[in-house]
Design a protein around this nucleic acid. Sequence first.
DNA 1: CAGGGAAAGTTAAAATCTGAACAAACGCGA
DNA 2: TCGCGTTTGTTCAGATTTTAACTTTCCCTG
Lengths: 144, 144
Amino acid sequence: MAAWRAFLSTAHLLDRRIEEQLKAAAGLTHPQFEILVRLAEAPDRQVRMTELARGVVVSKSALTYQITQLEKAGLVERATCPSDERGVFAVITEAGLRCLERVAPGHVEVVRRYLIDRLSRDELRTMTAAMRKTEEALRAPDGR
Amino acid sequence: MAAWRAFLSTAHLLDRRIEEQLKAAAGLTHPQFEILVRLAEAPDRQVRMTELARGVVVSKSALTYQITQLEKAGLVERATCPSDERGVFAVITEAGLRCLERVAPGHVEVVRRYLIDRLSRDELRTMTAAMRKTEEALRAPDGR
DNA sequence: CAGGGAAAGTTAAAATCTGAACAAACGCGA
DNA sequence: TCGCGTTTGTTCAGATTTTAACTTTCCCTG
């Protein structure tokens, strides 16, 4: 359980730092930033709402809210899905991409400074593998 | 960055599972549960508000809110601090302790199932060490 | 091809969190 | 001892998240 405690505290503390950095650099929240990253990486720079929600690990309604916010800020747009009348694509705009380019370096810097650069290559590899295993189990519908 | 992604997703997913389990088992949120755990472990089963907030990694105002909720539920009480007129102790009640005893096993079970038991002894040790280093850095006032 | 259940997004209300402002109490240096 | 900057916990307003409907559309089955 000690491991779990450390994990939990660290996750919260790191999240807090990141939030602070993003807010200062671009007025973005962490979830908003995550959304932009995922969109920027996606083919055609667009992702379906539900898939995006799963990726960012956020409820569908929270995503609806955040996309609306990002839309107001001009960083994202909604597009209807041709193949499925119900579907909605979130699409990152040019402004969104520029914003991301501007903010990403500072973000990476924080993650490196507090997490990545403190770990040896071995530690990093081990931790990544461990996280992957856990994530996989958590994403499995039955909890495996 | 892949490590970071895995870490982030896993933390969110696991948190979600835990929240779900606690809600079902006792109507508690994860922060509320954390608060109870820390109080139960403390000498005299009481902790000062500010210290508790630091431990649980939550803002002071969020703690005030949660303690009020827990007080309504009869799981926690507030006590004035004799040595410092400003200070407030959060104290866990008998009912709080009983609640914790009832819920803790299920909670531990979830954490083990998804995180602990998936990792080898080595992985676990490495990860704990890594988290401790990171946590220490994040808690240092200057970010070291 | 009609019906019913499942899935996609949104919405509304309630709960929770954040940040800033605040009042009270502390404590240190002049 | 006085005064001023800190610390403590709370409060308030605003932002965000959650949960549970709800609408629309899809798709499988008979």
